[in-house]
Design a protein around this nucleic acid. Structure first.
Ligand SMILES: [Zn+2]
Length: 664
DNA sequence: GCAAGGTC
């Protein structure tokens, strides 16, 4: 086969690796190159097919400066973004190959982005009238050959939906970002980079809400009755009922001391703890954060390194499924020869009948779950740690469920109060031997229904209610996944953008908003509320679906967005917003809250410290009531608790003490 | 210079 065929079809893949896989589905191929860019030639039904690839999007939207701005045109990415210069070699190759092609196949991933990637190339360099779409979900030999034999007409509605996605995000993101920046510039003549968008802004708001919630939290007391009893061995158990009032708890405690305690029910059952499902990127990011403390973004970069080195499959996937076309046995044979053979040995020791993958629920239109290929080469230290995790997870998902024997004992005092005791004993460790997870195993109790149980002691223990948990990069990522915003490729990066803008920072392991982040959040909530909710994404997705099915025109969707933004831009009080942000940044003098740097709202306090003051006034009364203690004692106890919010503590440490001093 | 989305 020659490297300059005539009358050929040009097949365009989304990325070099995918192109190579498509090439390898053919028994014979010729590798060719133009400079450093590679392409391949195969024959299909006797005619030459040239296979080449993009590297993701080669074109992006670019618009004029100024604000508001609604017009943008598609430009080569390497022109817009200097860091994307590497795309030029693929761009040039595809332009050259397109000039003589008689037919085009868009073989990019089968999703709206892939549809746009291929479409833009064929539209710019080739001829859309001669274009077809190849439809597949995994790049296995069988599926590739089937898909090439069953080419679809160009998926123009998918393309339209993809273009609409680009435009909606561009128009919203660019305009609101510029509105914020212009406001600050007009108030201070300073340039600072600010941004807002469909994914980053709801995430920022979520961080703010979480922090305010925790900062205003005042724990409430409640009481449990702890019973020491003899079930063959001495254990502590708690009455099933909690008490809000200390006196009531004390009185119940003294009464049950005199009552007989009997076993009412013993339930025993073997329970399976299912082996994990294969990794999608989100699960990998969560687990590598848990095991190694890697950020989601770092995990994504390391996974990319492993993928480019041929050690794992494509990592930016949402799928938790390994299709039957992937030969799991062969992968395990490969791993047996590699540096992590110790895990395969454990696998062999527990799995007698060969691998059986537990498939997960989540799916992906273009890629299977992440799995090791069985091939190994030298990579960076952290990439190797991640590889180790991926291998363990893969083997665990193909191994056996663990089994524990659970015993639940219900005990009842003669006057009706009940206690529950639960223990478990491990029967089969199964997958937990491969994928480190500790399974607690204790001896079960030797008791039966009707047994009398000796009570060795009863006392009342105070507990306090817990605030909502703070957000970490990992839990924020999970929240984004659950809220269905962002993609595998973008979530980790967008979290880092919030840090880069100095909207958020880490404190005590949790993400909290900075003064700037809080202010941007308030401004967006007031002037561009659409952009602060995850609903914008779900509504956009519904619109895109309508476009995909030909039920709505792309231009109508864009027109509606433009109208909405125009209206909101009109209401945007540039001067006011500029001054508000400038004050929070310390660029303009203003009257500060007694306890923080925010502007005074009333009575010498900012709006958040006023909220804290009101909250404390309300809750200290509940404390006095429940614990039968003085106001002063209640405040003292609230101040001591670690879970009490920061805003509340500010009030106690300053204002409340001053007021008490004045009152005396 | 700003978004979110591909991929390196
Ligand atoms: Zn304050």
């Amino acid at each position: 086969m020659s490297c300059s065929p005539k009358d050929y079809t040009l097949l365009i893949a989304e990325k070099p690796k995918a192109a190579k896989k498509i090439v390898e589905a053919f028994s014979k191929y010729q590798q060719c190159n133009k400079g450093k860019a590679y392409y391949w030639i195969v024959r299909w039904n006797g005619s030459p097919v040239v296979i080449a690839s993009a590297v993701g999007h080669l074109f992006d939207l670019n618009g004029k400066s100024g604000f508001p701005v609604f017009e943008a045109e598609w430009r080569p990415i390497y022109e817009i973004n200097k860091k994307a210069y590497y795309t030029k070699k693929y761009y040039d190759l595809l332009r050259w190959l397109s000039s003589n092609a008689k037919q085009f196949i868009n073989a990019c991933d089968y999703d709206i982005e892939g549809s746009v990637i291929g479409y833009m190339i064929i539209k710019t360099f080739g001829d859309l009238r001669k274009a077809k779409r190849m439809k597949y979900s995994t790049l296995t030999k069988q599926e590739i050959i089937t898909a090439i034999g069953d080419l679809q007409p160009l998926d123009i509605y998918m393309v339209e939906a993809g273009i609409a996605r680009h435009l909606v995000d561009w128009i919203w993101g660019i305009n609101v970002s510029r509105a914020l920046m212009k406001a600050v510039k007009s108030a201070t003549s300073k340039r600072i980079i600010l941004s807002a968008g469909r994914v980053q802004s709801p995430s920022l708001i979520q961080i703010i809400k979480n922090d305010i919630d925790r900062s205003l939290f005042v724990p409430l007391p409640y009481f449990k009755i702890r019973v020491k009893l003899d079930l063959g061995k001495e254990i502590y158990a708690y009455l099933d009922q909690d008490f809000e009032n200390k006196e009531e708890a004390k009185s119940v405690a003294s009464r049950i001391k005199k009552e007989e305690l009997k076993v009412e029910e013993v339930k025993q059952a073997d329970v399976r703890i299912p082996r994990p499902v294969p990794f999608n990127l989100g699960d990998l990011q969560v687990e590598s954060g848990r095991f190694f403390g890697f950020s989601p973004y770092k995990t994504e970069r390391l996974a990319e390194e492993l993928y480019l080195n041929g050690m794992i499959s494509y990592p930016r996937t949402n799928s938790q499924k390994i299709p039957p076309s992937i030969n799991v046995g062969e992968i395990i044979r490969g791993l047996r020869e590699g540096p992590l053979k110790k895990y395969v040995q454990v696998f062999d020791s527990i799995v007698a009948e060969g691998p059986r993958i537990r498939q997960g629920q989540r799916d992906d239109p273009a890629h299977p779950a992440i799995y090791p290929t069985g091939y190994f080469t030298r990579v960076s230290k952290d990439a190797y740690r991640l590889y180790d995790l991926i291998v363990r997870r893969f083997l665990a998902s193909a191994s056996l469920d663990a089994v524990v024997r659970k015993q639940d004992i219900l005990l009842r005092f003669a006057n009706g109060y009940t206690l529950s005791v639960g223990v478990q004993s491990v029967i089969e460790r199964g997958w937990t031997l491969i994928y480190s997870r500790d399974l607690k195993s204790e001896d079960l109790f030797n008791v039966k229904k009707g047994d009398k149980v000796r009570v060795l002691g009863v006392n009342v223990v105070m507990y306090t209610t817990k605030p909502s948990v703070g957000l970490s990069r990992i839990s924020l990522l999970k929240w984004m996944e659950e809220s269905k915003i962002g993609t595998e490729a973008t979530r980790g990066k967008i979290i880092e953008t919030l840090f880069l803008r100095k909207y958020v920072k880490l404190k005590g392991g949790y993400i909290i908003p900075t003064t700037l982040g809080l202010t941007v959040g308030e401004v967006l909530d007031y002037y561009f509320r659409d952009l602060t909710s995850v609903k914008m994404t779900s509504e956009m997705e519904s619109e895109l679906d309508l476009i995909k099915y030909g039920k709505k025109n792309k231009d109508d969707v864009i027109k509606e967005v433009k109208e909405r933004i125009s209206k909101q831009v009109e209401g945007f009080a540039e001067k006011e917003v500029g001054e508000k942000i400038a004050k929070r940044l310390g660029l303009i003098q203003y009257k500060k809250c007694a306890y923080c740097d925010l502007e005074v709202e009333k009575d010498g306090l900012c709006k958040y410290h006023r909220m804290a003051l009101a909250q404390l006034e309300k809750i200290k009364i509940i404390w006095e009531d429940r614990s039968a203690i003085s106001e002063e004692e209640a405040i003292k106890r609230i101040a001591k608790l670690k879970t009490t919010g920061k805003l509340i503590k500010d009030i106690i440490e300053n204002k409340w003490k001053d007021d008490v001093r004045h009152a005396r």
